[in-house]
Structure formats: C-alpha cells, structure tokens
Write a protein that binds this DNA or RNA. Structure first.
Lengths: 105, 105
DNA sequence: CTTTTAGTTTGATGGTTATCGAACTATAAA
DNA sequence: TTTATAGTTCGATAACCATCAAACTAAAAG
C-alpha cells in the first residue's frame, strides 16, 4: 500500500489544472466533491457509468493536478477537494467551475 | 475570402472553453489580447516562435471555443477577446485567467 | 485460509492534438 | 502583370488521451 502523492500546489502550472478540468467526467467529479465533501471511487463508477479503471485514471489526473487529495481508510479511498489551496494559488477558478450550470458543461 | 464564423456563446460547452485555454501558447494569446485589445497572427508567430500554420491552428481553436472574434482588413486578420460575452456566460473565468502570474502558466 | 471487495496497474485500441512544411488563396505593392 | 505579403488548408508525424478488460494488490469478511 504505497501512500498517495500530493504535489505542492506551487509546482503546478495553471494550464495543467485547466487541462485536468477540461474533461467532462473529471469536471463532474470535481463538482460532485463540492457537494459531498468526500467520496470514494465506486461512487463515480456508478454515477458516471465508467469502468473502475477509467475512474481510477481520472482520479489520478485530478490528484496530480493538485485538485484533490486522497485518504485511504481500510480498502476504500476517499477524496476531497483542495479548495483553499487552489483558491489561494488560482483565485476565482473554482468559483467559476461551480458557477456553471449543469447543462452548460 | 470566406468570412469567419463566430459561434454563439450559448452553444459552447464550458469544457470546450477550458480545453482551448489549457494549451500554454493559446493561453498566452488570450492574455496578450487583454493587453493589446487587438492583434494579428504574425504578432504571435514572432512572439511564440511558432510556424504560422501552427498559430493559425491555435487561433481557430480559440475562435471556435467562442473566446475570440476576428476581423479582416485587407490581407491582415485582427483578433480580439469576446470579453463581455464570456464573462456573461462563464462568470469569473477570464478574471481567473488574467490573475495568474506569468511564471505559473 | 479462502473469498469477496475496492482500487491500481498494465496493455491494447481508436481517437485527438501540436507541430511543421508545402501548396494554396487573396490582397497589396512594385 | 508580376511579385511580395498574410494567412489558411492539407498531409504527415509523433505524442498524447479516454476507454476498457485483464491481471494484480491489499484489506475485509466468511
């Protein structure tokens, strides 16, 4: 069980964050995390109707872009938004993401 | 000389806009347009050290994502930001783009 | 200990993208 | 009319990406 790596926000280019957010399923994951605070992968496999390996892939990209952080509890992985850090480094970005209407994704 | 097509902002998904902005050279073009108001392609060929066909490609993606509009004058094409429309549809997004420091792109 | 459950990793596939050079179009200049 | 200039389009290439299934890892349940 290797621990999850969470990059320092300072090392992450803005374009990398935008790229992570520019995939519709990943954007849905981020928006879902705002509502629920914390979720695990099986939640998204169900909600997005994606294979679990695909979800794992998207989660990894979001994590490496500094957008989410993970916590392992038993055999479940829980993820949450790195809200304050992102807001500190890239002010207004997450507000913009959450302001968008579902039908405009 | 077929006229340039500018899609209505209402037809453009947020993820498409993010994707257009997630490429560093395209993001530089957008940020440059904020400063200068209007520019043509040769400006960017020089500034970004890219082949003119590559610049043309990026400009097209930005235009089709609803971010810029073009005006043809003689043999030069001038581009400008669709600032107000974007701000109306996706509030805060452009502010976030302009708030980023050059070294964090 | 065996089985189930949650998730990652790997390999493959089909699609997309950034880049360039060459050919093309259209306007302006000589 | 010939030439130069600004930009688009096309074709090719190499890299990247979203997706899935299969194999793997680790923890919980039986």
């Amino acid at each position: 069980m290797k621990p999850l790596h969470h990059p320092s926000i300072d090392t992450i280019p803005y374009t990398k964050v935008l790229h992570a957010l520019s995939e519709p399923n990943r954007l849905r994951i981020i928006r879902c995390l705002r509502e629920s605070g914390e979720n695990n992968c099986s939640t998204y496999s169900l909600e997005l109707m994606l294979n679990k390996s695909t979800v794992s892939h998207h989660i990894k990209i979001l994590r490496e872009a500094g957008l989410i952080k993970g916590r392992i509890e038993g055999k479940e992985h829980y993820y949450s938004l790195r809200k304050d850090e992102i807001e500190q480094k890239f002010p207004g970005l997450l507000s913009s993401v959450f302001a968008v209407k579902d039908e405009d994704l």
